[in-house]
């Protein structure tokens, strides 16, 4: 019989105790790690490759949603959270279950059974769609990226521009460039529209970074940033840019 390896991500000790207590009667499971910090949890999920993660959403340093954005290992996910409005969306997608605190032992074991079935069937959840469907449509204050093994948190005010390339986007800061699997639409909807403008199908630019705008060819423009980087500007993007810059 297979043993399922579980990681608990929960920052409150009594809540962690309860999960362990609920799990203690279950056979063929093994708790391979407990984490109170989102950052450590994301690293551990990538390195320990658990079968199942019990994931809280409000966590120190990284939220549960942000963890999902950067983990590569397709673990089954059960959310355990006190209060929010994303439960329905999680069910529509691939979260195994969504437990609202406080939850009973029976309710927990039911979720665990569901997870075991999912794991036995080896149907890997699509983590990216899960992350995207869950991320609240709230303004972003930071973006979590992975560079090699390292996880980095980038404050949005450091972003100069975002460039689309196939399924990915390149995020440029003053010194660095990060690649993230995400859509332009995602950023367009969540970045502050006072600062960030989608100037072109493939570009979002931080307007405080624009040094000059030049005519490229008929009806199309090129924006030159302070550090010399260039962004394409379409006709409609030019209109919006003119409005925001007051020119």
């Amino acid at each position: 019989m297979q043993t399922y390896r579980i990681i608990i991500v929960e920052d409150e000790e009594p809540a962690r105790d309860l999960l362990k207590r609920y799990l203690s009667a279950s056979i063929n499971i093994e708790i391979i790690g407990e984490f109170a910090d989102g950052f450590e949890a994301a690293k551990a999920i990538n390195s320990l490759k658990p079968d199942l993660v019990l994931l809280d959403i409000q966590l120190p340093r990284l939220t549960g949603f942000e963890i999902l954005e950067i983990i590569e290992h397709p673990a089954a996910i059960i959310f355990t959270t006190a209060y929010d409005e994303y439960a329905l969306k999680a069910f529509e997608r691939n979260a195994v279950d969504y437990l609202l605190k406080p939850f009973s032992r029976d309710r927990f074991l039911q979720a665990l059974e569901r997870a075991k079935e999912r794991m036995a069937a080896k149907s890997a959840p699509n983590l990216e769609t899960l992350a995207e469907s869950l991320t609240p449509n709230e303004p972003l204050n930071r973006i979590v990226v992975k560079t090699g093994k390292a996880i980095q948190v980038v404050p949005i005010e450091q972003i100069e521009m975002i460039e689309a390339s196939d399924d990915y986007v390149s995020i440029y800061t003053n010194q660095e460039r990060f690649v993230k699997k995400q859509t332009m639409k995602y950023f367009e909807e969540r970045l502050n529209p006072e600062t960030f403008i989608r100037t072109h199908r493939s570009y979002i630019v931080n307007i405080t970074q624009i040094a000059s705008i030049e005519l490229y060819e008929k009806d199309s423009y090129i924006g030159i940033l302070r550090n010399g980087n260039k962004v394409k500007i379409s006709t409609s993007g030019y209109k919006e840019l003119k409005e925001k810059l007051g020119i």
């Binding site: 809540a15 209060y83 406080p102």
Partner: peptide, 18 residues
């Protein structure tokens, strides 16, 4: 604050056992 309320209730739920 619902977040506070439900997390507290969850702590209580845990403490009833321990």
């Amino acid at each position: 604050n619902p977040h506070f309320l439900f997390n507290s209730l969850n702590s209580i739920s845990s403490l009833t056992l321990s």
